[in-house]
Simulated scan of single mutants.
Amino acid sequence: MKSTVFAGILLMSSIAAAAPPKTALVIHGGAGVITRAQLSAEDQAGYEKALNAALDAGNAVLQRGGSAREAVIASVTVLEDSPLFNAGKGAVYNAEGGHELDASLMEGHTGKAGAVAGVRTIKNPILLAEAVMQHSPHVLLAGEGAEHFADTRKEIERVPPEYFDTEHRYKQLLKAQAEEKQTASNDLKGKYFGTVGAVALDRNGHIAAATSTGGMTNKRWSRIGDSPIIGAGTYANDQCGVSGTGWGEFFIRAAVAHDICARMKYRGDSLTQAAEEVLLKVVPEMGGDGGAIALDRDGNIALPFNTEGMYRGWIKPDGSRGVAIFKD
């Protein structure tokens, strides 16, 4: 009897040892005033297809044993290449009728980070952010300097500014400028924002987070939001990873991404407690809005947002997955 029990224990131990470590992935395509009345069934299907494609790209990396950094880059690149989201190809227009793109990336286990801001001719800003992290002594490069650095990296593709032009974003610019003429209000809540991002947990238990955006429609003076700011729109440590989306000025002031991870590390909050406290209380009380995706080292996922909707998707450690857009 004892030998049978012992043999059973050995068998269970060998099965546990053979089981691959857990991986997880969570993505977003921006938060804002997104209601069912605004999206046709065809449009909704298009967004869901794009989100699933981004999940597939990142998850493929994780399943073959790739790093969390590689996984979030794979997911974000897919979203940057889609004209549906405000990043890369689908970037919004600034007040001058051009495009200025931002992106950032951070590894939790190394603390390394890279970011770019205000680039105009980089097809995939997230790849340039990775190059800054991997091949420069800096964290954040901006504007022409960032593009000059891109010229030193053969893997970074440059495109003409017109590559980012899309009809629906141009219509958004015209609408924003018309509304600007009619009102002197500075209230930007729920208007003309968008971002994409991803957070991944790999088989080594490492976490990485990435964010990319075209910024704010009709923005002036080379305005930069939270997306390329480490600790504001993107952050990762050994316990937690976060990518934010929303009114960037408030995410910067509240250091949203860092605050979520810090509440876990220093106060012992759960991922859900930390993320919901910051996104559903701190940011709204300051006057801002938006959402975030967060993932911890156990594969727990949080997706809080205080807007009408947030494009989002996830693959949990047990392999279950989903995409969603609206609150319900």
Score class of each variant (00 low, 15 high):
D43Q: 15
S40H: 02
G197T: 14
V283I: 15
S40L: 00
R169L: 06
K112R: 15
A255C: 15
V282K: 13
A262N: 13
A117P: 02
A57W: 03
N218G: 03
G319V: 05
I156T: 13
F149I: 07
W221P: 00
A17H: 08
R223N: 02
A87Y: 04
S67G: 05
S227F: 10
D81T: 08
N306L: 06
D298H: 11
R169M: 10
D151M: 12
P161T: 10
A31M: 10
S136C: 09
G66L: 01
G246M: 11
S14G: 00
M12W: 14
T35H: 00
H168S: 12
S185Y: 13
S185G: 10
K22V: 05
K191C: 00
E155W: 06
A41Y: 03
G313M: 06
A95Y: 13
R220L: 12
G143V: 05
D151Q: 15
P161M: 08
I34W: 02
R253T: 13
L11K: 09
I301N: 04
D298P: 00
D318G: 10
C240H: 08
N237E: 09
A45C: 01
G244I: 07
Y170S: 06
P160N: 06
L141C: 09
T234A: 01
I34H: 01
A184P: 12
A324T: 06
G205M: 02
S136H: 12
G225N: 09
V256A: 15
E162P: 02
D318I: 12
G231R: 01
S14F: 15
G58M: 04
G90Q: 00
V256N: 01
I325P: 02
V33C: 02
D296R: 03
V5Y: 13
V26W: 07
G66S: 01
L303K: 12
M216G: 00
Q273R: 07
A150H: 06
Y266H: 11
A24D: 13
S320D: 14
G111T: 10
S222V: 01
K154H: 12
D269G: 01
G58P: 00
Q177K: 15
P304E: 10
A254Y: 03
A209N: 10
A53T: 06
D56Q: 10
K219A: 12
I122V: 14
K281N: 12
L141S: 08
K175Q: 15
Y192D: 11
V61T: 05
R253M: 06
L128D: 07
D269A: 14
S67M: 00
A200Y: 11
K112H: 13
I301V: 13
V159R: 02
K265Y: 04
A16C: 12
H138F: 10
A95L: 09
R120F: 01
S227T: 14
C240W: 04
E167Y: 03
T272Y: 04
Q273K: 09
G233F: 11
G214A: 06
M216K: 11
F149T: 10
K175H: 14
K191H: 04
E80W: 10
E48M: 02
T245C: 06
D43W: 00
A209L: 09
A24R: 11
K265N: 09
E107W: 01
T166I: 11
L51G: 05
G214T: 02
A71S: 15
S13M: 15
S3G: 07
S40K: 04
K189C: 02
E147Y: 12
P21A: 11
K154Q: 13
A41S: 13
P137A: 05
A53M: 02
E100H: 05
A150V: 08
S320Q: 15
G287H: 03
G30A: 01
Q44L: 05
D259I: 11
